[in-house]
């Protein structure tokens, strides 16, 4: 993106680029809608931009992220904790080998989590918009299995991309109204406290408190952090990974903040961790404007 020069959209004639597929930001928007099905025999439509649309239909038969479903039942909902623990271990070792200091390891873990966070925000909110019953019947669940989608698109790929899109039940069809966007810090923290925590760790987090000393500070308490439960380490806080997830969620929801972790052992919960969320000043200012 940084190297390419963006040309004005209309100065390039799309017909001179017949091989182009998808959106090209150096060319601007393309004009036509996908061609009508080949079987119905519209010859005129293949004139202007035929290259683009046939390429698109050929691509639908390939496995792609767009063929999968976002429905929670479309995939196995659980991951083996042991398998994840080993993966997480490798992640930490990698960060450790590449870093020179403890804070650098933590920063790397934080960055890894951040990219999960920005995705979780969209995914979980979108999922919770879908009405509960949608897609839970056995007939429609059959649609969600990847094989049936792939086989149907393979047979139809010669016809056109449009037919397959209509066959597939998209999750958006099951939405009567979208879940509200979270506009207040408390709302989005509640979302993390309940929805995100349940998705990640199978339970809600143990507490969500507002700091009494500072206005912009909130604390999420987890008495037994799941990811670091096997790790006995005093100097590196492996839960910075989770900090990264939280910060990714808040950042992409436009609540710029800084998340740190402090371990606060209690007699019953040796590994009790407190995630401290410090919002930046602009969040408070925005809140003050609306009030």
């Amino acid at each position: 993106m940084k190297q390419k020069i963006i040309n004005p959209s209309t100065s390039v004639n799309t017909a001179t680029h017949p091989g182009s597929t998808g959106y090209d930001y150096t060319m601007g928007p393309q004009q036509t809608l996908p061609d009508l099905p080949v079987s119905s025999g519209t010859i005129a439509a293949s004139g202007t931009n035929g290259g683009s649309s046939t390429a698109a239909s050929a691509h639908t038969s390939l496995p792609s992220v767009y063929n999968g479903s976002l429905h929670p039942h479309a995939h196995n909902q659980h991951v083996s904790l042991a398998a994840f623990a080993f993966l997480f271990q490798e992640l930490i070792s990698q960060a450790r080998n590449a870093s020179k200091s403890v804070s650098e390891i933590e920063m790397r873990l934080h960055r890894n989590g951040y990219h999960i966070g920005i995705r979780l925000l969209e995914l979980l909110n979108f999922r919770s918009s879908v009405s509960p019953g949608f897609g839970s019947t056995s007939s429609s669940r059959a649609f969600f299995s990847k094989t049936s989608i792939n086989s149907s698109s393979n047979t139809l790929a010669l016809n056109n991309a449009l037919t397959t899109t209509q066959d597939e039940p998209s999750l958006a069809q099951g939405i009567s109204h979208m879940k509200r966007r979270d506009l207040k810090p408390v709302e989005i923290l509640q979302f993390i406290h309940s929805t995100v925590w349940t998705y990640l760790f199978g339970r809600v987090s143990d507490d969500l408190v507002k700091s009494s000393e500072r206005d912009n500070e909130y604390m999420l308490v987890d008495s037994a952090p799941m990811l670091s439960q096997f790790i006995s380490s005093t100097n590196v806080q492996c839960d910075f990974f989770v900090c990264g997830i939280i910060e990714g969620i808040l950042d992409s929801a436009s609540f710029p903040c800084n998340v740190t972790i402090h371990s606060v052992p209690e007699p019953n919960f040796q590994q009790r961790a407190v995630f401290v969320v410090r919002f930046e000043q602009q969040v408070l200012e925005r809140e003050a404007l609306r009030a």
Partner: peptide, 12 residues
């Protein structure tokens, strides 16, 4: 987003 599949689906 440069994916041709995305493009095709949006247009459809």
């Amino acid at each position: 987003i440069t994916s041709p599949v995305f493009d095709g689906r949006v247009r459809a």
